[in-house]
Design a protein around this nucleic acid. Structure first.
Length: 198
DNA sequence: AACCAAGTCAACCGCAGGGGT
DNA sequence: GACCCCTGCGGTTGACTTGGT
């Protein structure tokens, strides 16, 4: 019985706009981290893990939406060749993209056609991976060709365009003072899936 | 128009590592 | 030093969408 109640403690499945709003407001007020306390402080019936994932993969204001560009794709290819499936590390080199984005992209675009390079990517102690990662990051910044530099600069511009509407919402609410009134374009990107009540 | 396969994406799970006690 | 808790990561799954027949 008790285990059933414990399992029942956390809600699962797609997030509702209300939950998103609560989480975004909480992170806006208190910052990220301490995810396990989020449910207590907000009343959300979501695990800390779930909250963190939702924030990182969807609500974060600096997220870039839309398709992976050819420039980003080439960066992914290069970094994956060096690092293998270190998605979070690769994501750090692609501002606005999450490890989940990249992982999904890789799976759908490359996994079938090319077997991932496993050079340098055998299981290694984390510390070793970190040093290698730092080396690679250094190398990336030094060897990034001109096309990629332009691409990154371009991405930064695009990113700003994405960021501001969202940060505006998160930091002070949307111009009309609400997360969504259901009529804004934002509502579209907030997902048609979620129009279900808790 | 209906069906099916492939593609896409959000979310969950299990594990490992780090920090605090 | 051992233990516990929290966080982050990578793998996987399942629902939904899109495109082809």
């Amino acid at each position: 019985m008790k285990s059933i109640m414990l399992e029942d403690r956390w809600r699962k499945g797609p997030w509702t706009p209300q939950e998103d709003k609560l989480l975004a407001e909480h992170v806006n007020l208190h910052g990220g981290g301490r995810w396990n306390s989020v449910s207590k402080l907000t009343g959300l019936r979501r695990s800390g893990k779930s909250c963190r994932l939702r924030w990182v993969n969807y609500l974060r204001p600096d997220l870039k939406r839309g398709k992976i560009t050819p420039e980003e794709e080439s960066i992914i290819l290069e970094l994956h060749a060096s690092w293998g499936n270190r998605w979070s590390a690769i994501a750090r080199s692609l501002p606005g993209r999450t490890d989940n984005d990249i992982k999904n992209y890789w799976r759908t675009h490359f996994k079938k056609s090319t077997s991932p390079s496993k050079n340098n990517v055998e299981k290694k102690p984390k510390a070793q991976l970190l040093t290698q990662q730092q080396d690679e990051e250094m190398r990336m910044t030094m060897t990034m060709n001109e096309v990629e530099r332009v691409a990154v600069a371009h991405d930064m511009q695009q990113e700003m365009a994405y960021v501001y509407p969202f940060t505006g919402m998160l930091q002070g609410g949307s111009p009309d003072g609400s997360i969504s009134d259901g009529s804004s374009e934002e509502e579209v990107s907030w997902g048609g899936l979620w129009h279900l009540d808790i």
